Computed example of a mutant assay.
Amino acid sequence: MGWDSGNRARPTGWARLRARTYYRDGRQCVGCGRALKLTEARCDHIVPWSKGGTDELSNLQTLCVPCHNAKSADETRKRMRTGEPRRPVDRERPDGWWSNLGDTSWRQR
């Protein structure tokens, strides 16, 4: 649990980056200010990865589960209203990203 990676492989050094984010944010949720243990925290992309956000420290924030779920739900509602797909089809992936998923026959090009 904690620091859920979602549906994609994380880059080398992700554990260190998420810990740096957690300590930079004062070991608390930036949404509500609740103190968190590292295992309770979620490392959230400020600009979603699906919208071109990066894994740079400046684009990451620490959120508690309720704040992360609320932000994710809000992003999903916005995406559904606009008809935008969850992930861009032509986005470049890190080397080996697709091989981590197993069967990739469904992938669009």
Rank of each mutant, 00 (worst) to 15 (best):
W3A: 01
D4I: 13
D4K: 07
S5M: 05
S5H: 11
G6I: 11
R8Y: 06
R8W: 06
R8L: 03
R10K: 09
P11F: 04
G13I: 00
W14F: 02
A15M: 12
L17W: 05
L17F: 05
A19Q: 07
R20P: 00
R20I: 00
Y22S: 02
Y22W: 09
Y22D: 01
D25N: 07
D25Y: 06
D25Q: 05
R27A: 13
R27T: 12
Q28V: 15
C29Q: 10
V30M: 08
R34T: 13
R34H: 14
A35F: 09
A35I: 02
L36R: 12
L36C: 06
K37Q: 15
L38G: 15
T39P: 15
E40Y: 13
A41K: 15
R42K: 09
C43E: 01
C43H: 02
D44Q: 07
D44M: 05
I46V: 12
V47W: 00
V47S: 02
P48M: 14
P48E: 15
W49G: 01
K51S: 10
G53M: 06
G53Q: 06
D55H: 12
D55P: 10
E56F: 00
L57T: 00
L57P: 01
L60Q: 01
L60M: 06
T62K: 01
T62C: 03
T62L: 02
L63T: 08
V65P: 13
V65L: 13
H68A: 09
H68M: 12
A70Q: 11
A73P: 02
A73L: 06
A73F: 04
D74R: 04
R77C: 05
M80D: 08
R81K: 05
T82H: 05
G83E: 11
E84L: 10
E84C: 12
P85F: 14
R87N: 07
P88L: 13
V89E: 04
D90A: 03
R91T: 02
E92D: 06
P94L: 03
G96S: 08
G96M: 04
W98E: 09
S99N: 11
S99Q: 13
S99V: 07
N100K: 14
L101G: 07
G102N: 13
T104M: 11
T104Q: 11
T104Y: 12
S105Y: 10
W106D: 06
W106F: 12
W106S: 09
R107S: 15
R107K: 15
R109G: 09
R109Y: 10
